[in-house]
Design a protein around this nucleic acid. Structure first.
Lengths: 119, 119
DNA sequence: TAAAGTGGTAACCCTGAAGTAACCTATGTC
DNA sequence: GACATAGGTTACTTCAGGGTTACCACTTTA
C-alpha cells in the first residue's frame, strides 16, 4: 500500500492563499489599498491597463473573500470607497517579505516599469 | 498633470513573485521538495491529479526561474531528481507564513481534502 | 440640449493554461 | 516477442480569466 495524496495541510492552505491573492491584479490592488481607502475611479486611474470590468470582478472577489470592504455612498454621481479589512492587513507584512525575497533573489531585474509617472 | 501609473516597486516585485509561484501547482511542488530531493515519478504519485505534461512544464519553469535543480542520471530506465535551490529555500519561511495566515484567517475551512492517504 | 462625471453591467471574443491520450527510448525479464 | 519501467514528448481539446466595446442611471454644468 502506498500513499497517493498530499500529506500536508501546509501545502493546501498555501494553495488556498494563492487562490485568493495569486493572480495578475490582486496583489497590486491590495498594495494600493494599503495606503488607505480609495475610490473605484482612482484605482482605475492608477492601473490604467486594467479594464473596468476586470477591476470590478477583482474587487468583488476580494470582497467575497473578506479582504476588502466596500462602502458605497448614496450620492449622485455615485461614490464608492474600498479599504482593506483586518484580514488583509495581516497579510501585508508577508507580502512585503515576498517583495523583499524577489528583490534579493532577482537583482538582475530592475522593475523600472513599475516606477511612477504622475498623480 | 496627474499620475497615471503605479508608483511602487513593491507591488511589482510582488507581481514578479506571483508570476513565479502564484499558480495552481508550484506551491505544492515547492512544498513537497522541501522534504528533500525527489524523483519525477514520486512527485507525480504524490499529486496524482496533475498530468505528466503539466508537471513537466511546471518543473521546467521552476528550473528556468532557478527555484529547483534538475539532476538527471544517464541510466536506463532514466532517473531524474529534483531539489530546491538556495533561492527557493529562502522562500520557504515566507510560504510558511502565508500558510499560517490562511489558517488563522479562514478557520471555517478544514482543509480536510489535503490530508493524506498512504505512501 | 447636450455633455461630463461615476460606478458600474451586458454581450461578445480571444488566448493561454491545463487536461487527455497515445507514443517514444532503451534495457531487462518472462 | 511482448511487456514493464522512468521520464518524458506530441497532438488535440477544453475552459476560465481576462479584454473590448457599448450602454445605463442620475444629476450638474455649460
Amino acid at each position: 500500500m502506498s500513499r497517493k495524496y498530499i500529506d500536508n495541510p501546509n501545502a493546501c492552505t498555501l494553495v488556498h492563499t494563492m487562490n485568493i491573492i495569486g493572480n495578475k491584479w490582486k496583489p497590486i490592488i491590495i498594495y494600493l489599498l494599503s495606503n488607505g481607502p480609495m475610490r473605484f475611479g482612482k484605482l482605475n486611474a492608477l492601473v490604467p491597463t486594467i479594464s473596468k470590468k476586470v477591476l470590478t470582478t477583482q474587487l468583488k472577489e476580494l470582497e467575497n473573500d473578506e479582504l476588502i470592504i466596500r462602502k458605497s455612498y448614496a450620492e449622485i454621481p455615485p461614490r464608492v470607497e474600498y479599504s482593506l479589512s483586518e484580514k488583509a492587513k495581516g497579510l501585508l507584512p508577508v507580502l512585503k517579505e515576498l517583495s523583499q525575497w524577489a528583490e534579493n533573489n532577482f537583482p538582475e531585474i530592475e522593475f523600472e516599469e513599475c516606477r511612477i509617472v504622475d498623480l
